[in-house]
C-alpha cells in the first residue's frame, strides 16, 4: 500500500507549525499506524532529516502515550483501539492521510505530534486517590465490594489517560477522563471518606487548566480507546451535586 501523509510539523512550543507532505511507500496492511510512521522516519533518517516526533512506548494499547488525530478522528477511524494498535488495513490504498496532534489549549504542542498532557497529572493530583499511607491498610478481605460495583469500577479504571476524550470533544472537555476516576472511587467503599472533596477539587483543577465544559455530545465515548461509558460522567455529576448540596 502507498499513502500520502499530511503531517503537522512544529519545531517546539513557541514556533509556528505547518503541514508537510510525505510519501509512505510499500506499506504492509498488517503494519500498525506507528510502524508506518517508523518507515517514513527511517527514510527521513537516511536523508539526515529530523524525524517526525510522536509519543509512543508500549505499542500494545495500554500505556496511553500514543495519540494522533488521524483523518479527523482521535486514534483514527476504528473504535476501541489506540493509535499503536490501529492497523493500516483499515485505510484505502493510495489515499491521503492527515495526521494532527491533539488540539486543546490545555495540551500545548511540544514538537510535531507530541503534546504536553501534564494537565491530566494535575487533575489526578487534585484528588484522584484514596489517602492511605503505606502500611496503614486493613486486611484486604475486610472490605467486601459487591461484584457488580467492582466490575463497574474496573470499567472506569481501565482509562489509560491518553487524552483522546479531550482531543475529540468539540469543547475540549476531559470529563470522561475525570469522571472515570471519580466514578471508580464513588463505586468503592474505599473512596467514600473523600468523595465530597475529591470531586470538587478535581473539577476545580480541570477548570483551572483551561479545559472546556462538557456539553454531553458523547464524542468522547465514541473515541475512547478503552470504550469507557458516559454513564461515568452522569455519576460524576451526581457526585458533584451531592458534594455541594447534600
Amino acid at each position: 500500500m502507498n499513502f500520502t501523509l499530511k503531517i503537522w510539523r512544529q519545531q517546539n512550543r513557541t514556533s509556528k507549525g505547518k503541514f508537510i507532505e510525505y510519501q509512505a511507500i510499500n506499506i504492509s496492511p498488517d503494519m500498525s499506524f506507528l510502524e508506518m510512521l517508523d518507515a517514513v522516519n527511517r527514510d527521513l533518517t537516511k536523508k539526515s532529516e529530523d524525524n517526525i516526533a510522536f509519543d509512543h512506548d508500549c505499542r500494545e494499547g495500554i500505556c496511553g502515550s500514543c495519540g494522533l488525530f488521524i483523518n479527523g478522528r482521535a486514534h483514527g477511524p476504528q473504535r476501541g483501539v489506540t493509535t499503536c494498535e490501529l492497523r493500516m488495513r483499515h485505510f484505502v490504498d493510495g489515499t491521503t492521510i492527515t495526521v494532527e496532534p491533539w488540539r486543546s489549549r490545555a495540551f500545548p504542542v511540544i514538537k510535531d505530534l507530541v503534546v504536553d498532557r501534564t494537565a491530566f497529572e494535575r487533575i489526578i493530583q487534585a484528588g484522584g486517590y484514596v489517602s492511605v499511607d503505606t502500611g496503614s491498610a486493613p486486611e484486604a478481605s475486610s472490605i467486601p465490594v459487591p461484584k457488580a460495583n467492582a466490575d463497574e469500577a474496573m470499567d472506569a479504571a481501565a482509562c489509560i489517560g491518553c487524552g483522546a476524550c479531550a482531543a475529540a470533544c468539540k469543547n475540549s472537555s476531559p470529563m470522561l477522563f475525570l469522571s472515570a476516576k471519580v466514578s471508580q472511587f464513588a463505586l468503592l467503599p474505599q473512596g467514600n471518606a473523600e468523595r465530597r472533596i475529591r470531586v470538587q477539587q478535581m473539577v476545580k483543577q480541570m477548570d483551572e487548566d483551561g479545559f472546556g465544559l462538557c456539553s454531553n455530545t458523547y464524542a468522547c465515548e465514541v473515541e475512547c480507546p478503552k470504550k469507557i461509558s458516559v454513564v461515568h460522567i452522569a455519576r460524576m455529576n451526581r457526585e458533584f451535586l451531592r458534594a455541594k448540596f447534600l
Binding site: K6, F19, F69, N71, G72, R73, T98, E100, R103, S104, R105, A106, K170, N171, S172, S173, G210, F211, G212, L213, S215
Partner: peptide, 13 residues
C-alpha cells in the same frame, strides 16, 4: 468552550 480548543483541527469528522 471556543477558547478551550485553541488551534482548530484541519480536519475533524
Amino acid at each position: 468552550n471556543k477558547a478551550a480548543r485553541g488551534d482548530a483541527y484541519k480536519i475533524q469528522k
